[in-house]
Nucleic acid binder design. Structure first.
Lengths: 221, 221
DNA sequence: TGATGTGAAAATTTTCACAGCG
DNA sequence: CGCTGTGAAAATTTTCACATCA
């Protein structure tokens, strides 16, 4: 077993969630031609404290040089390896409404090997239509996509009431990672990972903070 | 000071982040005609444990009835009040690229009083264009939007290299809450709250989990 | 009786501070 | 010398388990 594979087992969730941020900061440094970086500088670029950065990286291995810092390219490739980004991750987007079409047109997926291999919809009237240069396929295409094209990640962009059904079909076909844009909690087996992205939730959290500081100001006056 | 305002001061961040989920579950229950709910049922709807739900709610006040449960409508209005959703929150979207246009067309904002009052872009060639029935305005409109229309939340949908400039203009105009879709860490004063939504980060976290379980399987074999 | 609300315990996450090494 | 890597401490979050009260 490689060092990376051995270490990967016990990386705390909180640290995993920050690895993509470190990778992005490193990519920016590499693009700017920087070869070496200190934990202080890298942490600033990722918006965390230097102690936290060092602790997070210590879970992956010991890739720095004391008194010097980290080699930008090397650390980037180690983090990419820890995240599993050396392989590619075929993605399917389910639900060709407003949001699904926007995601299909969005270029964010292409970065880092997330290849959109299919657009799906449950509605027969939409199936066959072209979205962002791709034909919309029926949900029944899922098993084939998993077995023949290695589909690994499902993105759910359906309305809330169709999300659980869409998720069940993904899971049944063998997909083990789901990114859920619908405002519902999905029920899945233990071996399936779901992450939710919800605009409405984020705005409400911002409202809380905005409201709280308004109250604090009123009290201070 | 009201009970809600008094209690709001010390709600842990982790609990605040879950309040929108409880509110959504309660709204669904109310729509289904359910008048009363136990912590067990509500927690299931929000995807958390019942103990966590009760602990979270205890930070807002004591709104349940022992031996019975919670009144759906009443609890929903208490949570809405704690989140500051009794007032409305004018929103501006900055950056009319692919993502900005999708957000402008997205109806998710309209829920819960997040009213999109302006679409902005820094590019003069785009200013004046109509997107989703709204004229695109220049960044110079910001001070007026804040002072005359109470603009409170800025949504940044610009490319990464324009995000900090856009953020600075929002903050300078008086906006204190920012939702950032760009893949960069924004630097802001202490009294400004920023939340980041990043597709690429979420996909990379999913890749980590997918990769890890693949490794676990290989070891087990 | 039965589900809430809550102290106390456990687990997790973050910060501190410095030993250790290039 | 300077910066990493890391034990130990502090802070935060989650779970447990039961006293409490309608």
């Amino acid at each position: 077993m490689s060092t990376a594979a051995a270490a990967r087992r016990d990386v705390p969730d909180a640290a995993v969630a920050r690895l993509p941020g470190y990778l992005r900061a490193l990519t920016a440094l590499a693009a700017a031609g920087t070869a070496s970086v200190s934990s202080e500088e890298l942490a600033a670029g990722a918006g965390v404290s230097s102690a936290m950065l060092r602790k997070d990286l210590s879970h992956l291995g010991s890739y720095g040089v004391r008194g010097v810092g980290y080699d930008v390219e090397h650390l980037a490739s180690e983090i990419a390896a820890a995240l599993g980004l050396t392989q590619d991750w075929p993605v399917a987007i389910v639900g060709m409404g407003n949001l699904g079409r926007a995601l299909a047109a969005y270029r964010g997926f292409a970065e880092r090997g997330f290849r959109v291999i299919a657009l799906l919809d449950h509605d027969e009237r939409i199936v066959g239509e072209e979205v962002a240069g791709c034909p919309v396929r029926p949900m029944s295409a899922l098993p084939e996509l998993v077995h023949e094209q290695g589909l690994a990640i499902g993105v759910i962009a359906t309305p809330p009431d169709g999300a659980q059904v869409a998720c069940d079909l993904l899971v049944e076909a063998g997909v083990r990672s789901v990114l859920n844009f619908a405002s519902v909690v999905l029920t899945v087996p233990d071996d399936v990972t779901v992450r939710r992205v919800d605009l409405s939730t984020e705005l409400q959290i911002l409202a809380f903070h905005g409201h709280r500081s308004a109250v604090a100001e009123a009290v201070a006056r």
